[in-house]
């Protein structure tokens, strides 16, 4: 089916200024988390470790990109009255695919992320982009928009996770970097920097993620006055 449609929309694969904007806009000025306030829930739960955040980021990029693509391909065939359910089924289908794949590829991470993989379904980024973009645009553009938003989400996720893991556990990607106390991991042999620093457990707890996102918003809005909330 995809082949037929791509022929019909030949020439749609150009990559000009407009397409580039679709990819780069969500990274900063229109970031899904800090500006559109979408998909915050999972941003908090999975950012205790950088490795978890990266896996989650990849999963979300995959789901947003393909859900946008499929919805856009089907946009003229979806009956209006059951639009929401159809979109949700597409998303839930992709999420199940991700879950099954992750369970086969990396079982421990799958176990760690537990219900949060399932919660990608209700990650408002995906649903929000389907409604706002894919239902009204051509497949190629929708696909790019999906990737852009997924990456924008993943960047914030990894940023929060880096702060939380580095200062909360003293490690990055499970390698001990700073701090004195416990070698949390069996594979660390080298001595860490800043041995006087004792990792701050508060950062591993979920409220810390809230504070870090708030600080990111603070910095971003100080630099770009357009985004400031007037109300």
């Amino acid at each position: 089916m995809a082949e037929v449609l791509t022929k019909k929309e030949a020439g749609a694969f150009s990559f000009g200024k407009e397409e580039k904007k679709l990819l780069t806009d969500p990274l900063n000025d229109n970031n899904p988390i800090t500006v559109q306030v979408l998909g915050v829930c999972s941003a908090l739960a999975v950012t205790t470790l950088v490795s978890k955040a990266i896996v989650m980021g990849i999963a979300v990029i995959f789901v947003t990109a393909l859900a946008n693509l499929f919805t856009s391909l089907l946009r003229n065939y979806i009956p209006k009255s059951i639009r929401m359910i159809v979109q949700l089924v597409i998303i839930a289908f992709l999420v199940t695919v991700v879950e099954l794949a992750l369970k086969a590829v990396n079982y421990p991470i799958w176990k760690d992320l537990s219900v949060f993989i399932g919660l990608i379904i209700t990650n408002c980024i995906v649903m929000g982009r389907l409604e706002a973009f894919a239902m009204a645009n051509k497949p190629w553009k929708s696909f790019l928009d999906g990737i852009g938003n997924g990456v924008g989400y993943a960047i914030i996720l990894v940023m929060v996770a880096v702060v939380r893991e580095l200062f909360g556990k003293g490690s990055l990607l499970d390698f001990k970097i700073i701090g004195s106390t416990p070698e949390y991991l069996l594979n660390t042999t080298s001595t860490a920097w800043l041995s006087w620093y004792s990792p701050n457990n508060l950062l591993v707890l979920s409220p810390a993620a809230m504070f870090i996102v708030a600080i990111i918003i603070w910095i971003q809005r100080s630099r770009n006055a357009k985004l400031v909330d007037i109300s």
Binding site: G168, L203, L205
Partner: peptide
């Protein structure tokens, strides 16, 4: 090991 204890605690 545990099923769902608080990370960090």
């Amino acid at each position: 090991d545990h099923k769902g204890e608080t990370p960090g605690l």
